[in-house]
Design a protein around this nucleic acid. Sequence first.
RNA 1: GGAGAGGUGGCAGAGCGGUUGAAUGCACUCGCUUGGAAAGCGAGCAGAGGUGAUAAGCCUCUCGGGAGUUCGAAUCUCCCCCUCUCCGCCA
Length: 429
Amino acid sequence: MLDIVVIRRDPDRVRRSLQRRGLDSSVVDDVLRLDAEYRSALADLERTQSERRSLSEEIGRSSDKAAATAERRPQLDALSALIEERQERVRELAPELEGSPLRALLEHLPNLLDGSVPDGTDERANVTVRAWGERPQFDFTPKPHWELGEALGILDFERAVRLSGSRFSILKGKGARLARALAQFFLDRASARGYVEIAPPYLVTRTTMWSTGQLSKFADAMFRDEDTGLYMIPTAEVPLTALRGNEIIDAAELPCKYTALTPCFRKEAGAAGKETRGIVRQHQFDKVELVWLTQPERSFEALETLVDDAGSLLRELELPHRVVALCAGDVGFNAAKTYDLEVWVPSTNTYREISSCSNCTDFQARRAAIRFRRNAKSKPEPLHTLNGSGLAVGRTLLSIMENFQRADGSIAVPPALQPYAGFSILSSP
RNA sequence: GGAGAGGUGGCAGAGCGGUUGAAUGCACUCGCUUGGAAAGCGAGCAGAGGUGAUAAGCCUCUCGGGAGUUCGAAUCUCCCCCUCUCCGCCA
């Protein structure tokens, strides 16, 4: 949620950001108009409330309260009627009330883009910041991971479909073990870099989901239980970011860094027909997430650290990859700036997103009411939140399979992972 | 799922219809005191919104959430949520 005060004071900045995202900036005028109406209605209401309040206090002070009430009766009744009327008006306009037009507009305004975000409307305009590693040279034709996996008996798509339908997969034997090893490896590295490991709920309330900004945009992408109204998390970003919601954090405690391994559930409703093969895009996948809560002035520096935290995993696993700064049109709803980490996938001869690291500035913190106090005297203010994958287990697994495949269809395990896996070669049983 | 108890400021904990946004204690901030500290003393210290200069001041709202009764609600009524204890079920 954007700060309404910023919209009031610097509407041009908001318009510019919307335009860069390729969105209609005229909503800003609607917001300003509704906001002015709301504030004038609020002032009217408060004036009337104040009048009635002083009358009530007079009654409270008098010795004969019944007489005092009777005496002021007509005035009180008139004021009460007026208050009711004006309350109704305020209710219609209030930005904090669900269902009000102003709230609806505010809810759908994406975060302000940072100035350093490159221009552009879609992923073609994304800018490669740096690349790391040598792409593997094969003296044979590299196979896609699903072929390798099925041949090795570690991936089973047929039975997964039988159990749960399309976009599910089953890992078996050493495949399952390797996935577990990766998750463990990621968590250990995150801990070493100062992230506190959290085992959060995988089901969260609508309010929690709303507070991290998932609901306005991703509502139809999420699984939800009808009975309880609980949502299955699409990423651990949700519980980790909302973890400190409605709290006022001491500045000395910042930055707070959290990590969690969780399954992520996504309907992938908009992705029909895309990437139906393999384990690239699934309804359920495991991911280790990294989340920061920082002081505002440190958040962009934190973003660079976060990207390095995620990148260090790929370096250790010796997976060739690049870091891409998303262009204006490609940066998500919550984020002010995003870097994607893309890993090399030999079978498609392309880089493929394996981590997305975003600075959400105060956008989520405002919704979730995560605030901090600079010192004992100062007012609470929203802090900045960041999140990034560190990393997606399935996508890492498939990139290891493809990058480390050998002519005989076996797969070498990256040295860093071997202590976790307990084996160095994955071959047919 | 059943029965009971309870949800008040950063924490603990009073208040149970009238100037109470809230006693008291702890924590915290500032000052006095001190060689320095502790203790002691004095002052301050919830959040949100509006207005103002992102000041002071002023105004409104908030005592789990929502609705209601009343001139007036933390206090009374109803609904919901949550926590705790006991019982049941259970990985």
